[in-house]
């Protein structure tokens, strides 16, 4: 029955010139369910929002959408608040990912030998990576409180005045970065740790013979061998950091003022506070373009077809 169906479909596909010979259908058959699902819920919405970005449409008004071609983009690029959000986004990603790499690499070097309890330590370090971002954001908001917060209690133990983390523009920006670094450096650590423990021995032996210092070994042996993993880890994190939303949304909602309004907050505000669907679609396509640039590079280096 199935065989018959297969033959019929194959026959007509060959006749129409889609396939060259029998059995060419097999890869497509394996692919079909995924493609059908993703086509409906991923690619179609993407195209939809692309089209939407050429329309002026306020969802709460019954007037409907009006084709404005590039107006949304022109308005967007002339909007200081948008550029502000782009700048914050870039800073946020650059600083957090850099710090995460530093800490992750440092800790990976520190723990890079067998010791009792190794497994427990690694399992515990995994927890922050998988904590619900909303819970993380809310907990940090709680901890940052100058009166009741644990962080300021700690600062007080050392005799300093409480820092109103979420009150001042710079502090608030630092605060959202600290939250991100806290949650995500173990991710860097895991990747680099795995990679470190699988490095070959021979270059180290050679370095030992030539009498290199520890720093030299790190700089000229370890680092070059780690480089591919570092690149992949960094790009995975960059793309992930471009998605940051819920933790910042619950921590600062983009404030004080607009000090933490990164792109996702800007888009969210325009879509779900102002209901300017076309305008927000245009803004989100800028974000997509940035994310795609990184990911296509990553895909091309990491996969071969």
């Amino acid at each position: 029955m199935i065989k018959k169906l297969k033959n019929t479909i194959e026959g007509s596909l060959i006749k129409w010139g889609f396939l060259e010979k029998k059995d060419d259908i097999i890869p497509y058959a394996f692919l079909a369910p995924a493609l059908i699902i993703l086509g409906g819920i991923l690619f179609f919405p993407l195209v939809y929002s692309f089209v939407l970005s050429f329309f002026n449409w306020n969802m709460t008004q019954s007037g409907g959408a009006e084709f404005v071609f590039l107006d949304n983009f022109i308005k967007l690029f002339g909007n200081g608040a948008f550029w502000h959000s782009v700048r914050l986004q870039v800073l946020f990603v650059a600083i957090s990912v850099f710090l995460e790499l530093l800490i992750g690499l440092g800790v990976a070097m520190l723990l890079n030998h067998n010791f009792a309890g190794e497994h427990v330590v690694r399992a515990l370090l995994l927890l922050p990576v998988f904590i619900l971002p909303v819970v993380s954001g809310l907990t940090f908001r709680f901890m940052y409180d100058p009166q009741y917060g644990a962080i300021n209690w700690l600062i007080g133990l050392f005799g300093f005045n409480p820092v109103p983390f979420l009150s001042k523009s710079t502090f608030a920006f630092v605060a959202i970065i600290i939250q991100d670094v806290w949650r995500m450096w173990p991710f860097m650590f895991m990747i680099l740790y795995a990679s470190l423990s699988s490095l070959p021995e021979s270059p180290y032996e050679a370095a030992a013979i030539s009498g290199a210092t520890k720093w030299q070994v790190f700089r000229h042996v370890t680092l070059p061998m780690l480089k591919p993993s570092i690149v992949i880890a960094v790009i995975l994190r960059i793309v992930n950091a471009l998605k940051a939303f819920s933790e910042i949304y619950v921590m600062t909602n983009g404030g004080p003022g607009d000090a933490t309004s990164i792109m996702s907050i800007f888009i969210y505000k325009n879509a779900f506070d102002f209901y300017e669907m076309g305008y927000s679609a245009a803004a989100s396509y800028v974000l997509v373009a940035i994310a795609l640039a990184f990911s296509i590079y990553l895909v091309k280096t990491q996969f071969e077809f």
Binding site: D145, P146, Q147, Y148, N152, P164, S167, K168, T252, G255
Partner: peptide, 16 residues
């Protein structure tokens, strides 16, 4: 105002 005066929302006010 309290130390968190510049970032006070409902949770902070209620707590205070």
């Amino acid at each position: 105002g309290p130390p968190s005066k510049l970032s006070m929302g409902h949770p902070e006010t209620i707590q205070n």
